[in-house]
C-alpha cells in the first residue's frame, strides 16, 4: 500500500493524468454505435443509461467502502431484500410506497451500521463481515418471501425504475432512473470530494494508523462509509424493483459488478484512492461491454467470464502503473 495517493507523486507521465476509464468508455460507445446505429437514437442510449443506473449508483456507494480500505459484499443481497421486502410491505397498496421506501432506507442504515461496527469494534475483516451479512440477508429474503416470488409492486413504487418522461426537447425521452442516477451521483461526488468526511475516508484507507494518529475518528468514519454503501444499495434496489417487478434473484452478483466497476474506474483495492465520477464511468463501461457482447450475439454466461477477466486485468494494470509511477 502506498503511503500517499499515487496521483500526488511527481514525475508521472502525462497520459496518466486523465483517468483512462473515460477513453475506454468512449471507445466502447463508438464501437457500439458502429455495430448498431440504433444505439445513437434516444431510445438506444437512454435505455442503456436506464439499465446502467442501478449499477452506477451501487458502484459509487461501494467506492466509499473501497476507498476506506474495505469491501461491501452485502450490497447485492440488500438489493434483493429491498425488492422482496417492498413487495411484502406494500401489499398491492399504491399509497404505501412512501413509508415503505422510508422503511427500506432505515433498513439500509441498520445494515450499514452493523457492517461498520463488526468491522471496527469486533475487528472482523470486511470481506468476512459483509460476506456474513450477505448470507444472512439472503436468508432473510427467502424467509420473508417464502422462497418464491409472490406479490406485486404497485406502479407508484415502480415509477422510479420504470417511468419515462416523454417529449423532452433534444433528447426525446428521459427515464426517471437516469435522473435518480445523476442526482445520486452528484450527491455522492460532493460528499466524497468536497467534505471533510471524504478526506477522512481517503486518509483512513490510505494508512489507518497514520489517520488515527492524526485524529481521524475511525469508528464514525468507517461506519459512514458502510452506511453510504448500504443506502446506495437500497436506491439501486428501488430502481431494480421498479424496472421489472418482484424477483428473488434480482441482486445476485451485483456486489461483484459494483466492485469491478469501481476498480475499472481506477479505485485502489485496499483503499486510499478512488473517484466517484470514475466509478460511475466504470459502471457505464461494464454495462457498455455487456451491451457490445449482446449486440455481437454472445450468450449471457460469457459476460461473467469477461467480467472476471476485466477485474483481474484492471487490478493488474493498476498495479503495473503504480510500479511505473513509483519507479
Amino acid at each position: 500500500m502506498s503511503l500517499a495517493p499515487a496521483s500526488e507523486k511527481p514525475g508521472r507521465s502525462r497520459w496518466a493524468q486523465i483517468n483512462p476509464v473515460y477513453f475506454v468508455l468512449l471507445a466502447l460507445l463508438v464501437l457500439i454505435v458502429l455495430q448498431n446505429p440504433r444505439f445513437a437514437e434516444p431510445t438506444g442510449y437512454m435505455n442503456f443509461l436506464k439499465r446502467a443506473a442501478p449499477l452506477a449508483i451501487l458502484a459509487a456507494g461501494q467506492l466509499y467502502v473501497i476507498v476506506s480500505g474495505g469491501f461491501d459484499l452485502s450490497a447485492g443481497s440488500l438489493i434483493t431484500l429491498v425488492v422482496v421486502g417492498s413487495s411484502m410491505l406494500t401489499n398491492n397498496d399504491p399509497n404505501a410506497t412512501a413509508w415503505v421506501i422510508a422503511v427500506m432506507y432505515a433498513i439500509g442504515v441498520v445494515v450499514g451500521c452493523v457492517n461498520g461496527l463488526v468491522v471496527t469494534v469486533l475487528r472482523v475483516p470486511s470481506l468476512i463481515a459483509t460476506l456474513g451479512m450477505m448470507i444472512s440477508l439472503g436468508g432473510l429474503s427467502m424467509m420473508w418471501s417464502g422462497g418464491s416470488p409472490r406479490g406485486y409492486l404497485p406502479d407508484t413504487f415502480r415509477f422510479f425504475g420504470r417511468a419515462l418522461i416523454r417529449d423532452v426537447p433534444v433528447i426525446g425521452l428521459l427515464p426517471i432512473a437516469v435522473i435518480v442516477m445523476v442526482v445520486s451521483g452528484l450527491l455522492l461526488w460532493l460528499l466524497m470530494s468536497r467534505t471533510n468526511l471524504g478526506r477522512m475516508i481517503h486518509a483512513l484507507g490510505d494508512n489507518p494508523r497514520a489517520a488515527q494518529l492524526a485524529g481521524v475518528p475511525v469508528l464514525p468514519v468507517r461506519l459512514s462509509a458502510f452506511v453510504v454503501s448500504s443506502l446506495s444499495a437500497v436506491t439501486a434496489g428501488i430502481l431494480l424493483g421498479g424496472f421489472a417487478g418482484v424477483s428473488t434473484d434480482v441482486g445476485t452478483g451485483y456486489e461483484l459488478q459494483a466492485i469491478t466497476a469501481a476498480v475499472l474506474g481506477g479505485a485502489q483495492l485496499l483503499g486510499g484512492r478512488g473517484s466517484v465520477p470514475a466509478a460511475i464511468a466504470g459502471a457505464l463501461t461494464l454495462q457498455a461491454i455487456f451491451t457490445l457482447l449482446n449486440f455481437m450475439g454472445f450468450p449471457q454466461p460469457l459476460r461473467q467470464v469477461v467480467q472476471g477477466l476485466i477485474l483481474i486485468a484492471a487490478v493488474g494494470l493498476a498495479a503495473y502503473r503504480k510500479k511505473q509511477g513509483a519507479g
Binding site: 439499465r51 416470488p149 417487478g245 428473488t248 434473484d249
Partner: peptide, 8 residues
Amino acid sequence: GDNAKTKS
C-alpha cells in the same frame, strides 16, 4: 422464471 431476467 425470473421477471428481471426475462425483461432484460
